[in-house]
Design a binder for these strands. Sequence first.
DNA 1: CGCAATCTTGAATCATTTCAACATAAGTGG
DNA 2: CCACTTATGTTGAAATGATTCAAGATTGCG
Lengths: 239, 239
Amino acid sequence: MIEKLLLKLRARDSLSPVEETALREGIAEVRDYPADKTFVREGELLNFSTLLIEGLVCRYKDLSGGERQIAAIHVPGDFVDLHSFSLKRLDHSIMTLSPCKVGIVPHDRLTKITETLPHLTRLLWFSTNVDAALHREWELSLGRRDALSRTAHLFCELQARLEVVGMAEPDGYDLPLTQTELAECLGLTNVHVNRTLKVLRERGLVDFRGHRVTIQDREALEQVAEFNRAFLYLDRRVF
Amino acid sequence: MIEKLLLKLRARDSLSPVEETALREGIAEVRDYPADKTFVREGELLNFSTLLIEGLVCRYKDLSGGERQIAAIHVPGDFVDLHSFSLKRLDHSIMTLSPCKVGIVPHDRLTKITETLPHLTRLLWFSTNVDAALHREWELSLGRRDALSRTAHLFCELQARLEVVGMAEPDGYDLPLTQTELAECLGLTNVHVNRTLKVLRERGLVDFRGHRVTIQDREALEQVAEFNRAFLYLDRRVF
DNA sequence: CGCAATCTTGAATCATTTCAACATAAGTGG
DNA sequence: CCACTTATGTTGAAATGATTCAAGATTGCG
């Protein structure tokens, strides 16, 4: 259930058996959601956080004109809204991008962790800080990378994140997103995403079709994206 | 020294005298930096976090072509890089925008707080989560708001954040930024920022000149920006 | 199989950038 | 305190990347 979360945390630091148990017992309930289901709405009061076990989830914000910006994508093993533990009401909504299985972690169990397991607390805090680092990389993409580089960067990011949890092959991964959803991540229109995907494919960098990302030339792709995996904090910390 | 930080934390939750003391004693040293000084570089190993006491600071990322994206602006009372406590090496650099006074908080003192003061730990965790909420709002701006609305939104955000720490009047505040730096926040060119500022001024919304922001019509400005202060988490949490 | 969602392409339009020139303000040394 | 220098702000015109609108093709689903 929490195996992918453990993979990710252990890539960074070690976990004692007690800590592992605390995490395991943090999950009060497991729920299944269908695709395209908004299961947390902006502003709603929460008393639990959600651990993604299977499927893809995104967090998004809307403008009054109907424009949507996806602020983050989550893969299995991610705490989707661990930050709701301190924020209580979120500034964004959360929806599934594919059918999902999620673990419900009541906030009082997290409070207990903060009272008794400081090292685990720091690890959980760390994981919300990694989320913020992802946001910053997206800010850079949205603010300064052009459509091609921005799109390439997202594909690189997901390759790296999925690899850690054993869900990517060296040459690519499944990505159950529509071009419109991709556009909502990238701050572009679906039409322009379509054209950009074509260019990426024709240049022999990545091919995204039929919900499958095929990395054609990883090195060249990462170069176009100016991708550097350090910001993902997936590697053991080095002092 | 930490008065503005306390103002901000108390706007959200209460703090015991012991917690207040722990924060106060967290500061090992106070440093002064001149304007435009990058005092933390991306990737460098850190063993302290920085509390901003006076002046303005930003966190930024660069691309190889020299394009810069500012990911966050910090006002007095903000922990600029509390996240370096768990990340150790940052994915961005940090520089002053004006002459600054900062407090140096060694990571081992933060570790001690996590071991002995769980409630204060949660409050500090909360404050890094608010940073992430700001990043998300900027993602929305960068991805979906046009230049006018995006610029208006930043002015609204800073008005609200400066008010909490007593650094804004009802009609505006000092903002020691150049148009080029503003452009680096907004994902625009300095030329376009200049034109956008002119439109905002001519429409009677805000006037930014000579390092001073004058809010001409707050209601109309917030409407153009689609500004809602909830994402700042400046208000006491409501259950 | 048939309908709806998604993808694809072209052409016109629009927001923003680029380049370049000039104006103003701020900072420094004599 | 003025003159000189550099940084910052302003404006116009042309170019560009992305959007919009619209139509047709393809895919996936009940």
